[in-house]
C-alpha cells in the first residue's frame, strides 16, 4: 500500500485568554492521532492548554505574488488610525 501519513498544522493556546498560535506541523494518520502527537511533540514543557489540528491540505494561503494588490492598498488609509485626527492637547480621555 505505502500511503504516507499526511501533514497536519498544529495550533496551540498557551494559556486561557490568549489566541491559538501556529506552533508547527507533524505527521499523523488521523485527527485523533494528530491531537495526541501534538500534545506529545509541542506541549512537553507545559506550553499549552488547548490544541487545534488541521490537515495542511485544507489550509488556503494567499499568494505572496498578490501581496501588492492584497496588502498595499491598506497602507495609505491612515484615517483608520487614531493618530490621523488632530485634537487639542487639553481634550482628555479620547
Amino acid at each position: 500500500m505505502n500511503k504516507n501519513w499526511p501533514l497536519w498544522e498544529i495550533f496551540v493556546r498557551s494559556k486561557n485568554g490568549l489566541e491559538h498560535r501556529h506552533f508547527g506541523s507533524l505527521h499523523a494518520a488521523d485527527a485523533e492521532m494528530a491531537l495526541e502527537n501534538a500534545r506529545d511533540v509541542y506541549t512537553r514543557r507545559s506550553e499549552g492548554v488547548s490544541i487545534w489540528v488541521v490537515e495542511s491540505k485544507y489550509i488556503t494561503a494567499s499568494n505572496p505574488e498578490h501581496n501588492g494588490e492584497l496588502f498595499e492598498p491598506a497602507q495609505d488609509k491612515v484615517y483608520r488610525h487614531p493618530t490621523f485626527y488632530d485634537l487639542p492637547d487639553d481634550v482628555k480621555h479620547m
Binding site: M1, N2, K3, N4, W5, A29, D30, M33
Partner: peptide
C-alpha cells in the same frame, strides 16, 4: 504506518 492509514 500502513495500518494507521487504513484505519483512518
Amino acid at each position: 504506518r500502513d495500518a494507521a492509514m487504513a484505519y483512518a
